[in-house]
Design a binder for these strands. Structure first.
Length: 504
RNA sequence: GGCCCAUUCGUCUAUCGGUUAGGACGCAAGAUUUUCAUUCUUGAAAGAGCAGUUCGAUUCUGCUAUGGGCUACCA
């Protein structure tokens, strides 16, 4: 029977959402939407010791910014609420008891310190079929002993009783069949009495089953424990409705070895988080894509193509197009190095696609911060002319500043190269010339000035670059008559006069 | 150490046994421009190694190497 597609993203609120997690969520979202399914946000806060205040809000805000929406979950609600695992204690307890009753799990009293000591004495110590009979647990202790230990308030954990020597198969949508022998699996802790909370493995299986999840699309770091998960489905008798698995390759460091980490961002100077994050404990600030000036569409597009492609040469896709084109089978098996330069290129492309009015509006705060007051129409014109030069809205100010603030300094190199002895006289001539132009349009002004240069047989390069220097303060910039058009006649003349006075 | 996954230009990738191994980012050169940028053109740049299967392997298999992940009362 075909079940309605239901997928989930299940982050743990231990800090800001890593960009790799964002990609995982994105793939889940694309998959859900293309099949008309549902996407659920579940918060896996089963590690009470690692809970970080604000992390959950951060996660929700991140997806809101990115345009990735959930149909059910924390902050939205839904028929399978609650979606926060810490609020589902009683549910898990039922299933833990079921496993205990069926003999697929047992109670263990070994303390963390004891286990650590055990690992220290034998390097490859693993709590499994070969060692469990030497430990303090309900398999080695009598029922009376177990009961009295619990009655006395002794803390315990519940472990999965994994039977050895079985090849457990995981059918992965990306990798095909993966086989792992159960002997290499350990008796994973499923539940801890200390906080009455399950661990990831148990909570995950129970919730995925209860929430009727059909596909588990998650990071490759879960592949080694996937066999344990299929075993748990079997222990519970849920094999029929076990979700299909897809393990995504990881995002790797741009340089060197290892997976992309928080530190790489600081080290290499680019964000690895969607939003800025202020760590409540350390006080450290980690930068986010939003604050770095990225468009959410660009981040989505960039991330989508990191480990997936539609099989053709196109690279620019809207969310709707991604939803149509995405397929799990086309996800690449190997880890992708994170290429920040490509990310910038995506943003540049999206900047170009934006309407000039919108970009101008985005630039306004920057202008206000610098006390620039100009007509909005002028900003639009400047943006139209200059946006192709930058990747981010916030990079616009620097190359555009001269439009809004007349230069007070003039580039020495350009003066040396272009400001000749007869330049001041020529510039004064130019002023009179410009004064007589009534139609100060790009075409007319250009025509008049060019005509003046040629009839007087002036050196084109020197005159024009000197002219540019008076307007821009530097020997670079857009087409000069585009500049005069935006500046207007008055300002153009004023700048020439000021430059002549300043440079001499 | 053990187990699992992976391996095409510097990077992201296409190729589903037969291709001059394609595209994109980045880089370089040339053209364009009164300047810078843009744009256009061009270029350099890849099948980890060794066996095997096959008429033929980047593509299939094995081994080695390398990279990655896991090996917690973290997820």
């Amino acid at each position: 029977m075909e079940r309605k597609v239901r997928v989930r993203f299940a982050p743990s609120p231990t800090g800001p959402l890593h960009i790799g997690g964002v990609r995982t969520a994105l793939y889940n979202y694309l998959f859900a939407k293309q099949s008309g399914g549902e996407f659920i946000l579940r918060i896996e806060d089963t590690d009470s010791t690692r809970f970080v205040p604000g992390a959950e809000e951060y996660i929700i805000e991140s997806f809101k910014w990115l345009g990735i929406t959930f149909d059910e979950g924390v902050g939205i609600g839904g028929p399978f609420a609650p979606y926060r695992q810490s609020e589902r204690r009683s549910i898990y307890k039922t299933y833990v008891d079921q496993l205990l009753a069926s003999g697929h799990a047992y109670i263990a009293f070994d303390t963390p310190a004891e286990l650590e000591a055990k690992r220290a004495e034998s390097a490859n110590f693993q709590y499994d079929a070969s060692t469990r009979m030497m430990m303090r647990n309900s398999l080695t202790l009598s029922k009376e002993e177990v009961d009295s230990l619990i009655a006395n308030g002794q803390q315990y954990v519940v472990r999965a009783k994994v039977e050895p020597n079985e090849d457990v198969e995981v059918n992965d949508l990306i990798r095909g069949k993966v086989v792992i022998n159960s002997s290499v699996l350990d008796d994973k802790v499923l539940y801890k009495s200390a906080d009455e909370l399950p661990t990831y493995h148990l909570a995950n299986i129970v919730d995925d089953h209860l929430m009727e999840i059909t596909h588990v699309i998650r990071g490759e770091e879960w592949l080694p424990s996937a066999p344990l998960h299929v075993l748990l489905y079997r222990y519970f008798g849920w094999t029929d409705t076990m979700p299909q698995f897809a393990h995504l390759s990881l995002l790797l460091k741009p340089d060197g070895n290892g997976k992309l980490s928080k530190r790489d961002g600081d080290r290499l100077g680019f964000p690895v988080f969607p939003l800025n994050w202020n760590d409540p404990k350390s006080g450290d600030l980690s930068s986010g894509y939003r604050e770095a000036g990225y468009f959410p569409e660009a981040v989505v597009n960039f991330l989508a193509l990191l480990g997936w492609n539609p099989g053709n040469d196109e690279e620019l896709f809207s969310m709707d197009e991604l939803i149509k084109l995405f397929s799990i089978e086309r996800c690449s098996k190997n880890g992708a190095r994170f290429d920040y330069e490509k990310g910038k290129w995506f943003n540049h492309k999206y900047l170009l696609m934006k309407e000039n009015e919108e970009v101008a509006r985005l630039m306004l705060p920057e202008l206000q911060a610098r006390n620039v007051e100009v007509p909005f129409e002028m900003v639009v014109k400047v943006v139209a002319l200059m946006k192709e030069r930058v990747s981010f809205v916030k990079d616009l100010w620097e190359p555009c500043a001269f439009f809004f603030v007349a230069p007070v300094e003039y580039d020495e190199k350009t003066i040396k190269k272009r400001w000749k002895e007869d330049t001041p006289a020529q510039m004064r001539e130019l002023v009179t010339l410009l004064q007589d132009i009534d139609d100060f349009s790009i075409q007319k002004t250009e025509e008049v000035v060019m005509n003046w240069v040629t009839t007087n047989q002036y050196h084109m390069g020197n005159v024009m670059n000197a002219f540019r220097l008076t307007l821009v303060g530097e020997g670079k910039g857009p087409h000069i008559f585009e500049i005069t058009d935006i500046l207007g006649k008055e300002e153009t003349i004023r700048r020439i006069e000021r430059a002549v006075a300043a440079i001499g």
